[in-house]
């Protein structure tokens, strides 16, 4: 088991989603009484909180395998809806092994 040290104080966690090589983990956490989505970069140790407009909060998220896009199931005003977001301004892609730009992680990371 690989502990997620940076997220341990923001439980409960839900809806985990990994990129191709496991470099990025998108997950919903609890922060200050609010549910919010974050992406952790297991290579650099950085956490990217993903702020949402309006009174919406995330129910479920899905990271594309190359980490270029994120789909979020959002709820607000009694309905749920899926919205897509471009992540390329935040993180670099995680390409499959064998493709230029792919990431190699140690098991301990």
């Amino acid at each position: 088991m690989i502990p997620l040290k940076h997220l341990s104080s923001h439980q409960p966690h839900s809806s985990p989603s990994l990129s191709w090589n496991g470099r990025y983990l998108a997950v919903i956490i609890q922060r200050g009484g609010k549910r919010m989505a974050v992406i952790t970069d297991r290579l650099s140790g950085q956490i990217h909180p993903l702020s949402l407009p309006g009174n919406k909060y995330p129910i479920r998220i899905s990271l594309s395998p190359d980490a270029r896009q994120l789909a979020m199931e959002l709820t607000g005003k009694g309905t749920s809806r899926i919205e897509l977001f471009n992540l390329q301004t935040i993180i670099e892609p995680d390409e499959p092994i064998g493709i230029r730009g792919s990431t190699s992680l140690n098991q301990s990371q």
Binding site: E83, L84, N86, I90
Partner: peptide, 19 residues
């Protein structure tokens, strides 16, 4: 270790097919 990120919505998809 914590950067404040700003995602870009994809309105051409969000406002058509998913809506």
């Amino acid at each position: 270790s914590c950067t404040n990120a700003s995602m870009q919505p994809l309105p051409e998809i969000n406002n058509t097919i998913l809506k």
